[in-house]
Design a binder for these strands. Structure first.
Lengths: 109, 109
DNA sequence: CCCATCAATCGCAATATTACGATAAATAAA
DNA sequence: TTTATTTATCGTAATATTGCGATTGATGGG
């Protein structure tokens, strides 16, 4: 128990849920919004922006990297992060695809 | 520790993250897809559709209800569920608003 | 009334997530 | 070389999530 039963769902369902989950934390939302706002690579002043410890930010960055939403490139002694435009677009498309499917009929409730 | 530090984020960031989190599990994705496919109120044959115990499904339904995505109306001895069109539309709009903000410039990474 | 059925809730166990201090590894500056 | 800075990782603690069996409360049929 305690583990999600991924084997009973389709690959697509698991993938979509994973994408949503990656965005399911305010720190990760904030990080992405910051990167979007800066419209450029951003060295890790993210730690200064949010009120979380460096180790915690690093963990959140790793999760965003895991789903491919951000890239990090080593820049001397620090690391620069930016949004992966292609993956960002993919997320957008997949999410739109999910929500577009519902056409409002006359439901009872 | 262990708790998300909601107080350091904006209301909007917390809300958006909460919405994403609600969709961050394949069972909840599957439930919504099923309701969308049926395009109608659906009594709890959802339990038969997915391979999860009744108690577990009930929990997932409760979470979807919590964010308002579905409504449940008592129909005799069973309960009928359907998607809340207004909230569905709201999710769609908010998600689109989040993703639209990124315009691809020439980034370094 | 008595029994069957359906769905929410309780209680529990297993696992995942969040957060942070401490440490390690890498590079830059002195 | 020594020191400072930056970031990933480790270890740990607190809390949340997932899943299920059992129970409860409600309704309908007999």
């Amino acid at each position: 128990m305690g583990t999600t039963k991924t084997e009973i769902f389709t690959e697509k369902q698991n993938k979509l849920a994973g994408m949503m989950k990656a965005l399911g934390h305010p720190a990760r939302i904030a990080i992405l919004q910051y990167l979007v706002k800066k419209q450029a690579c951003v060295c890790n002043d993210i730690v200064g922006e949010l009120g979380l410890a460096q180790a915690t930010i690093s963990q959140h960055l790793a999760e965003l990297k895991k789903v491919g939403l951000i890239n990090g490139t080593i820049e001397g002694t620090s690391v620069c992060y930016c949004i992966d435009a292609k993956v960002w677009e993919h997320f957008k498309t997949v999410f739109e695809g999910f929500f577009v499917k519902y056409v409002n009929k006359d439901n009872c409730c």
